[in-house]
Simulated scan of single mutants.
Amino acid sequence: MKKTVILCFLFFGMLTAQSQELNWHTDVKEAISIGNKEHKPLLLFFTGSDWCGWCIRLQKEVLLTPEFAKWAAENVVLVELDYPRRTPQSDEIKKQNGELQQAFGIQGFPTIHFANGSDKEGKVNFEGLGNTGYVAGGPLAWLAVANEILKKK
């Protein structure tokens, strides 16, 4: 009996963990398509995942929390635009991310832009809604800033 109860707890625990797992897109055109179908803006996370201390801190304090996961599922399509130093990336992703870094004028990490996107005849266009970065105070403080930005959409 004890084994059955333990197995049930483990099983439901895994389901809960999986339900809070976020889908971070790396292909911007795919993310735009999903955003347009779901009528949600993109959250573009410009990060140096394997070297940027503030990026890692933002991940731990906000982006990996249940509060953020719930909010993100309801409000945005997540896009990670990574600029790693040690982690390999395909040439296509490097090219895409470099172009987006230039298009959005990214000069520091982490930077998060909220935008609506369109992809017409292979040309990607964005309507910027606002941007933020690391916000001290955990997920609730960060989400308050994000919600203010999204009110403008």
Rank of each mutant, 00 (worst) to 15 (best):
L58Q: 05
F9M: 13
S19M: 08
I6L: 15
D50M: 09
N131C: 11
S90Q: 12
D50C: 10
P88N: 08
L10E: 07
L78R: 02
T65L: 02
M1A: 15
Q89E: 13
G53A: 11
G53E: 14
F11G: 04
T16P: 00
Q101A: 14
N116V: 03
N75V: 00
F68A: 01
K60E: 14
A115C: 08
L150P: 01
G98V: 07
G53T: 12
V135F: 08
N97Y: 06
V79E: 01
R85N: 12
R85K: 14
F45S: 05
G53W: 12
H113K: 12
E148H: 01
P110E: 03
L64G: 09
F126R: 03
G105W: 05
D82M: 08
N23L: 03
V145D: 03
Q101S: 13
P88K: 10
V145H: 07
K37R: 12
K2C: 13
S118L: 07
G130K: 10
I93R: 13
H113P: 01
F46W: 06
N147K: 08
S90G: 12
A141P: 09
L100V: 02
P139E: 03
I112P: 01
F126A: 02
C8W: 14
K60N: 15
F68T: 01
H39R: 11
C52I: 10
K151E: 14
L7H: 11
A115V: 08
E30D: 10
E99C: 04
E74D: 13
S90W: 08
E121M: 10
H25D: 00
E148N: 04
L58V: 05
F11H: 05
D82Y: 07
Q96T: 05
N131T: 14
P41T: 05
K70H: 08
H113A: 09
F126Y: 07
G108F: 15
G138R: 05
I112V: 15
F109L: 14
T16F: 12
N23M: 00
P84C: 13
E67H: 04
N147V: 00
Q101G: 13
C52Y: 08
T111S: 15
K40P: 02
A141N: 12
F126T: 03
E92W: 14
